[in-house]
Simulated scan of single mutants.
Amino acid sequence: MSEAAASRTPGGAHPLDAVVWNALTTQQRRFAIGDERARRFPAAIAPFAALAGEDAESFAALRALIEPQRPVALVTPGEIALPAGFSVLRHVTLLQMLWQGEPDSTPACEHVRLGVADVPDMVALATATEPGPFGPRTIELGEYLGVRKAGKLAAMAGERMRLDGYTEISAVCVDPEFRGQGHAAGLMKLLIAGIRARAETPFLHVLTSNHGAIALYRRLGFVERRQMHLMVLGAAAD
């Protein structure tokens, strides 16, 4: 295990147990909306939010963030008992995986770096393939790479949440017309190399039901760290 992967926050909790909070209070604090009790990313970037605690004041602060910014998504190690004032729009189980593989010396796959001009194609691909939340400003979170075939965005992958020592790989998706050609694996290898060059550990989240993706990630050197809960919340009518 890498030195970064072995680190822990005070009290024995792993930094990735509170992944959203730690991202919004360290490497990505410039995106944070909220205060010391609850924070979220802007809705156009990502729906993710986090609580400082499970007290009434923190939940009230979180509910206030839903009103102008639409639903929020919590990623937590355990299930949360919600007070009144919230509606659960979705609740699924994720597998959080850490990269603990060996460096890959195979030649880099053919790719392009994606920028603002590519956002419409990126949103369209994410909408068609549903790799997870992806908005018009998600690209601001990190580097995104893609594969273009005959001018069409055939595949993409990029960096999403970042916290001290860790960077998440996300938005891994391939147009059905171009699957089975190694595009997802090739792009992920490039991202892994870039993250490791910053002395950070790659990690990712995947639905526990997505067995095909989990198998691919294992082949690339990711190991299962723990299950996490994803809960999408709206504000219930008063």
Rank of each mutant, 00 (worst) to 15 (best):
A23T: 00
L24H: 01
T25D: 10
Q28M: 14
Q28G: 09
Q28N: 13
R29K: 15
R29L: 13
R30V: 11
A32W: 08
G34K: 15
D35M: 10
R39V: 10
R39P: 04
R40F: 15
F41I: 08
F41T: 11
F41G: 06
P42Q: 07
A43F: 04
A43I: 00
A44Q: 02
A46K: 01
A46M: 15
P47M: 02
P47D: 12
F48S: 02
A49C: 02
A50T: 02
L51D: 09
D55I: 01
D55K: 02
D55Y: 09
A56V: 06
S58M: 08
R63E: 05
A64I: 05
A64F: 06
I66C: 01
I66K: 09
E67D: 10
P68W: 13
Q69A: 09
Q69R: 07
R70E: 10
P71I: 02
V72I: 00
L74N: 05
V75R: 03
I80P: 02
I80V: 15
I80S: 03
A81P: 02
A81V: 06
P83R: 10
G85Q: 14
F86Y: 10
S87D: 08
V88P: 04
L89P: 01
R90C: 03
H91T: 00
H91C: 09
V92E: 06
L94P: 01
L95Y: 12
L95A: 04
L98A: 04
Q100T: 08
Q100S: 12
Q100N: 14
Q100H: 10
P103L: 09
P103M: 06
S105F: 07
S105L: 13
T106R: 12
P107Q: 13
P107E: 00
E110H: 08
R113A: 08
G115S: 03
V116M: 04
V116H: 10
A117P: 00
V119E: 08
D121C: 06
D121Y: 00
D121T: 11
D121A: 15
V123G: 03
V123T: 07
A124V: 14
A128L: 02
A128T: 11
E130P: 00
G132A: 02
F134E: 02
G135R: 06
G135H: 09
P136N: 04
P136C: 02
R137Y: 06
T138N: 05
I139Y: 03
E140N: 05
E140T: 03
E140Q: 12
G142I: 11
Y144R: 08
K149F: 09
K152M: 14
L153D: 12
A154M: 04
